[in-house]
């Protein structure tokens, strides 16, 4: 899609400061030609959703390693729906136990990328799922 650059928000919910993964993803998406907006650390669901809407992104990538995903992700999805952002795809990565993934997909997380995923898989997923 060379005509319009895909805009992605990489967000760090949760209290942890582990931003290595988020920053690597930011750079990889940038190098793949996307426009990347990074929220910085410790953003609450309200802040994440309002930046996503303001920045008019097509995808939100949530990076979390604190274990609070089951509490924070549903809030983000609900806020998106409330604020007219249900068209935005939400993907996630970090330390997320496999058994939590079906539940997260059910509430509307489109994909969960586990540790060890090559960055080009994420790039391909985004390109393939924004039709």
């Amino acid at each position: 899609m060379p005509d319009k650059r895909i805009r992605v928000l990489i967000a760090k919910p949760g209290l942890d400061g582990h931003d290595r993964g988020a920053k690597v993803i930011c750079r990889a998406l940038r190098d793949a030609g996307f426009e990347v907006i990074y929220t910085g650390l410790r953003r609450n669901p309200e802040e994440i959703v309002s930046s996503a809407i303001q920045e008019d992104v097509s995808v939100i990538g949530l990076s979390i390693l604190s274990g609070a995903h089951n509490v924070l992700f549903p809030k983000i999805i609900n806020l998106l729906k409330e604020q007219g952002g249900e068209g935005i795809k939400v993907i996630a990565g970090g330390i997320i136990p496999e058994k939590d993934i079906p539940g997260l997909k059910k509430i509307g997380i489109s994909e969960v990328f586990l540790p060890g995923t090559p960055t080009n898989k994420i790039v391909e997923w985004i390109r393939g799922n924004l039709k």
Binding site: G14, L15, D16, R42, N44, S66, G67, A68, H69, N70, V71, L72
Partner: peptide
């Protein structure tokens, strides 16, 4: 994490984090 960040368990940022890490 709330202790590491110097906030109490009843702080809004502590939601979902209590006793986790």
């Amino acid at each position: 994490l709330p202790t590491l960040m110097g906030v109490d368990s009843d702080h809004p940022l502590a939601e979902g984090e209590i006793g986790k890490c």
